[in-house]
Design a binder for these strands. Structure first.
Lengths: 213, 213
DNA sequence: GAGTGTGAAGTGCTTCACAGCA
DNA sequence: TGCTGTGAAGCACTTCACACTC
């Protein structure tokens, strides 16, 4: 209810831990220490323990963590004890790749509705879903009370308009692939995936640190 | 040569600024202040000035920044005064979306080589490039001296092996789409794009802050 | 002994406040 | 006056050091 002083990055790290815990569970491992889990997730042992400590005490001194139990705790923590429905806007290059990507459904994220403006894409089927005309976006999302997460995979020019429709339809989280700053009100969480931006970090790194040890 | 105390995030922010400067240039604007640029890029005026200040003094007191000049400075800074060649490993969902995405080439990032293990994908053409058998990956990248950046878009199980081949072939930067921790030596820069991870931040946010003002 | 949980110290990034320049 | 550039202060996150538990 009341979140004291939790670094934003703690959630990302815990999410990485969950990924590794799932692997451990599949391998049939039943106990894990913070050091082991950290090695798997690319974190230090202290980071693992500290991040967990923001949410409670999950371990047993001297013995580490119970894999199955830890998995359940973290899943509940991250809200993964239920499935989440997603609306995808844009069924172009990236959008259709996301539709075909099985990882989402496996992780409990279900693309429930897809919209596009291009008549050539409308009515196309991807598994269980059919691409609809973006004109119906706002109404469809409004009436489907469960959808709180949206993915924007439209060209930069259309992204802001789409974002505004989504916000009006009560979307609370937007994963944005368009290379543009979305202006939305404070209650909405936006995460940007900007590949050119990532690559520019590389070109900077390569240009400046050309010869570092 | 010697980089003092530059926050890692400064490069990302400057990259965002460049995106907006390009827009301003297209619109024919010739001057811009840190406040304006910040508004466009989603930053504060101080952030903009501070980030620039790590690299020099680009502005004119009282008058702001010259758009064309600033663009050139930042492009050189980020190493965008030349084109960068990229090797893509994996021509599946995500890989083929990246191949069709025009944004990279526009930004000076050119996918020069593509590899896959699937015989059904090998020999497929995407624009100028043809998918090759991943067996030839290491040799091809080694002999092509210009490629320092790689994108991994293969299943999680294969990603580590591919990464090791890339590192042996002298790749210095890896953009990794596989949901797995790549273990590479310190000189190699890895950036991970993990969509499930991003979505889990959303589900956490929605589960905990369900009712916040 | 092995490993957790955490206050306290340390570090690095951000923001403030203002000097300086056109 | 309008805006840049930056040392200094403030803040948030990370790491350390160790008390504590099984």
């Amino acid at each position: 209810m009341d979140s004291k002083k939790i670094p934003k990055s703690a959630v990302t790290r815990i999410s990485l831990c969950l990924r590794e815990i799932n692997r451990l569970e599949k391998e049939g491992k039943d106990k894990v220490s913070s050091t082991e889990l950290g090695d798997l997730a690319g974190l230090t042992d202290v980071q693992v323990r500290k991040d967990f400590s923001y949410f409670g005490q999950f371990g047993r001194s001297g013995a580490g963590y119970d894999v199955v139990q830890l998995k359940k705790i973290i899943e509940r923590l991250l809200g993964k004890d239920k499935a989440w429905e997603i609306v995808l806007v844009g069924a172009g290059n990236i959008g259709s790749a996301l539709l075909r990507y099985p990882g989402f459904k496996n992780q409990g994220f279900i693309i429930k509705e897809v919209f596009d403006a291009d008549t050539k894409k409308i009515d196309k089927r991807y598994g269980d879903v059919t691409v609809k005309d973006v004109k119906g976006l706002e109404d469809a999302v409004k009436s489907s009370k469960n959808i709180k997460i949206a993915i924007i995979a439209v060209p930069a020019e259309s992204a802001q308009v789409v974002a505004e429709q989504l916000v009006r339809a009560d979307i609370k989280c937007i994963l944005n692939f368009a290379p543009v700053l979305l202006k939305v009100n404070g209650g909405v969480m936006v995460k940007n995936i900007d590949l050119s931006n990532e690559l520019e970090s590389f070109s900077f790194f390569l240009s400046s640190n050309g010869n570092e040890d």
